[in-house]
Design a protein around this nucleic acid. Structure first.
Lengths: 367, 367
DNA sequence: TGCATTAATGGTAGCGCTACCATATGTAGG
DNA sequence: CCTACATATGGTAGCGCTACCATTAATGCA
């Protein structure tokens, strides 16, 4: 009844035999080398190399009910935002023998819950999860997962364990304040489909304008699906989620319907690029007649003509630090600060560069 | 000597006990439901739901020496090119119970070889790998992996099993021909760090120009690291790999050093965007004085002012079709055509829209 | 009616590894 | 010299599942 061993794959027993030691010693040499004499360690290393032995992590997981998988939950792969974050996570991996498993929640709580259940059942080494709006059930599963959990890309006072990110509301607020500061008064908000975090930015925009009695709900210009689920994106040309074309259309609509608007705060750089093109096509002076601001600081923002004002956030760093935090905790280090605010930078560029002089004039013109 | 069972996790035995059947029957109900009577199937489903049973894929892999992991090898996560491909792969996953494991080769053969070794040893359900330039050792491992292999994003006459992609050389060739057709004569090639595939496009560019005796190596304008390894990218603002700023600098250099250049073919849309901004900043007429063409057809290309000519390639579709091909083969379907050419489209837009009238004039002017 | 064949289910023995103990050695302390 | 205790190594029994057979009941067909 012996089951055939596919002779191809060397096992720990083969290594042990070749090195003339017990299998368990090989296992130790791999996992806790300090507990094996230097001499044996050397012999074993040799055997491993000769046989090109690679441990089977399935067997390892089964035997130890632990894995070396870091599960990463992101809401979307569509946006370069999360590509950068994921890249940071991968870059933070190097030199460890951890593995990464990306799970895509598609901005859907039910999917997220199912994924988390599946993940915790498989005893990951750690979990990195985007945002703070997990359902109660999801949160409970995470709390009981018995591994390091890092939330990213947002902030809250009550992280599950640790959170690394920044405040979207404050980012929206500060950028809007900047626009007001330099003299814009009729500031529209351009947006595509909104998730929780982009909604927080809208919130910041609103608060900043209300501080000055400048808020006008009619100036929230929105395109794209109105659903809770994000629209499906396949090839970018059919993008109803977020695109420069959408930004261009939004800008044109704004100019047509609200001729008194003197600045647009775009919920995403992609939109701001479209807004810029719309203005160029109509020969509208930027920043004189219209100011433009975006969010993310993608590479093209500073190269644009005029260079586009935006909020720089630290996507790569966020992923990278999350991974480093995970690795620290797995090495037994202290968890450190539970809340890490990476902040953001208001990149004041030519597209909103009105002198306060011009600002005053503009304020007058607004009247 | 009994090892403690962490009571938390229900096993197949628990389900079997609750359903009053043997464990193996539960196993079958999950994997080959048609071999279990409808009645038992129903009972078992109930038990699974009551216990929230989730199979342990580590144990499954160990027992069956097979996994449900589709390994995906990409050379980079930096470029939105591969983000789109990966997104297509994930989208193609839905409804299956396959899992995805992304491995990043960093354009490095040695890393790729190590990753492939590690992957094949773990018996993946299938492998999707970018490009065709695997080392002999890598190729041999893949050939002996005993699972479906799909190469993507390029073409060759001798795929390992199946390849889904398009010809970069032909894309470069056709775009360059278009530029010549509409009358451009001194056509520069703008590029950052080049990988094998972008080099193929350069090759196409060269061939097209040589057809007309227009090739001039001095017009290959290049920035970024000259190494075989790609430069590291962290936050996009420090991007020495590929950025709009680089495109802008390249365009400015081209204008300064080669005032007779009348068109630029950018190896990437990102560069073409920078090139556009450079021209706008100098008030240079596009497409009159300078024509601009890119490669990829990112969303902003058609929104730009003027809309930018480019090569549309099918990134999402490439990943998606690769995944569907994998699923088909795993279901036992025929492998189908070994070579799937997804092609590309030359998107002729305003940035190269010279009438043939103007083209002739320009031809004259060149003399 | 008898015997081959199929359909439906179960038992047992691993898959490759590590947790848990047991067993040698060496080394210090009384 | 003996105990105590750390250091270094090994043996055994699973982890949760499925491959491989075995078994039983139901069906087909001469």
């Amino acid at each position: 009844m012996a089951r055939k061993r596919s002779s191809s794959r060397p096992t720990i027993a083969d290594v042990a035999a070749l090195a003339g030691v017990g299998a368990i010693t090989v296992s130790r040499a791999l996992r806790e080398p300090e507990k094996v004499s230097q001499q044996l360690r050397h012999t074993i290393d040799g055997a491993i190399r000769t046989l090109k032995y690679i441990p089977d992590h399935n067997a390892r997981a089964l035997a130890s009910s632990r894995t070396d998988v870091v599960a990463v939950l992101v809401p979307s792969l569509t946006q370069s935002v999360f590509s950068d974050v994921v890249r940071g996570i991968y870059d933070g991996l190097e030199g460890s023998n951890l593995r990464i498993e990306i799970a895509n929640t598609r901005y859907n709580d039910a999917i997220e819950e199912q994924l988390v259940l599946n993940i915790v059942r498989h005893k990951p080494a750690a979990i990195i999860i985007s945002g703070i709006e997990q359902t109660a059930a999801t949160r409970e599963m995470l709390e009981n997962a018995g591994c390091p959990i890092v939330q990213i890309m947002d902030l809250t006072d009550s992280p599950i364990q640790k959170i690394i990110g920044f405040s979207h509301e404050r980012a929206g607020l500060e950028m809007t304040r900047h626009l007001v500061d330099v003299g814009y008064r009729r500031i529209a908000f351009l947006t595509g489909w909104m998730n929780t975090r982009s909604r927080e930015r809208l919130c910041g925009y609103r608060k900043a304008l209300e501080e000055h009695g400048l808020f006008d709900p009619a100036l929230i210009m929105r395109r794209g699906a109105d659903s809770i689920e994000p629209p499906r994106v396949t090839e970018p040309t059919q993008n109803e989620f977020l695109s420069a074309s959408m930004g261009r259309a939004l800008m044109e609509e704004t100019l047509d319907r609200h001729p008194d608007v003197d600045a647009v705060f775009c919920n995403n750089d992609v939109l701001s690029l479209g807004a810029l093109f719309a203005c160029q096509a109509r020969n509208i002076d930027i920043p004189g007649r219209i100011g433009i601001a975006g969010f993310n600081d993608f590479d093209y923002m500073e190269a644009a003509h005029p260079a586009l004002t935006t909020v720089r956030i630290h996507r790569w760093r966020c992923g990278h630090e999350a991974m480093l935090a995970v690795r620290g905790q797995l090495k037994g280090e202290d968890i450190g600060p539970r809340i890490v605010d990476l902040g953001f930078d208001i990149m004041k560029r030519a597209s909103t560069n009105r002198s306060s002089q011009a600002a005053t004039e503009n304020g007058v013109r607004q009247k």
